[in-house]
Structure formats: structure tokens, C-alpha cells
Amino acid sequence: MKTTQLIDALVQDQATRSPPVATVCAVALVPAVVTATVLFMMALGPRPDIAAAAETPRFLFKFVVAFGLTVTALALLPRLAQPGRDLRGRGRVLLLAPLLLAGAVATELILLPAAEWWPRLVGRNLAVCLVSIPALSLAPLAALLVALRHGAPTAPGVAGAVAGLAAGGIGATLYAAHCTDDSPLFVATWYTLAVALVVVAGAAIGRRVLRW
């Protein structure tokens, strides 16, 4: 087939215009977040003393970090599915949540006597944390990967990893409502590890399914 003949065919294919990737991500996330929330309510549910906990800064800070991570990763994601987008400087937005967390850890180390550090870091529920956050992230990760396939990520592994970061953030935000370990020492260790698992999964799957 001659290239001019291919162009003839392309010009005649005036199918309905596809929506931008950001729109597709947003639409795909709605059922995924609903699914994750239902799963959360059925399997875990909010901690019994959530009303009292909501008045403590340590508990609230977990949501700030987890939700901040979600928002920053989601803000970056559509650009990763647009070829030729200049990302220099944009990636730095992902440092926001880790920096906030680092600041909270430093504050915690100052506030607590050294003997308290280790028990707070180990906490009570680390196994539940490591299983729950990835489990709650599954539906959002799948939705974001499907949405990215609609785009054209030139670095499939990176796009998958950032999708994992966003999905992990959603899982962590939900789990934070159940978790009774509120110390930034716990969050910085176990939440980070749990989210990292989702990131690695996102990168590995992305590399396979996001080629185009």
C-alpha cells in the first residue's frame, strides 16, 4: 500500500473524537474508588474511636500525606500519556508528600523520648497495613492502567509506576481511617513500603500493557 493511499484511508476515518486522557482517567477512577471504598467498609471499616481520633493531629496528618500523594500523582499522570510533553520540573511535584512526611518524622523524633521511637515505628498493625493498602489499591491501579492505554505513554514503565503511586495513595487514604497507628514513624515506614509495592507492580504491569 502506498503511503498516499494510507493517508486517503486516515482522512476518511472521521470517527468520534476520543476524549483527552485526563478525562478518561477521571471517569475510570469513579467506579474504582467506589469499589475500593466498598471493599474497605466490608473488610475493615473505620476505627471505632474515629470521632475522637479526628481531633488529633497525628491521625489527620495521615490523610494529608496520603491524599496529597494521590493528588500530586494524578496531576502528573495525564502528561505521561502525551508524547513529547516537557516534564522537566513537573516531576518535582511528587516530592511534596515525601517532604511533608519527612518533616512530620523530624517533628515526631523531637516530641517523643527516644525510648518511644521503636514501639511507635513498629506499631500494632503493620501486617494488616502491608496487605490492606495494596489490596485497596488494586481497583484504582487497574482503572488507571486501562485509562493510560487510551493515551500514548512513551515511557510505559514510568507511567505505570506513577499510576501505582496514585493508586497506592488512594489505598493509603482509605486504610488511614481504619489504622490505629498514627505516628509519622509508622506511616513513613509501613505506608511507604505498602505504596512502594503498588508502584513496583504498576511499573511492571505498565511495561507490558502500556506499549502502543
Partner: peptide
Amino acid sequence: HTWDPSAPIGPWVAAIARN
């Protein structure tokens, strides 16, 4: 649809060709 009308089109074309 992955070209954003507010972004330059040259880098978009180049990135697809390169890919």
C-alpha cells in the same frame, strides 16, 4: 487526541516518530 492543542505540536510528532 493525545496532542493537547495548548502544547507545541512539533515535539508531539517527534516523540511518536521516535517511539
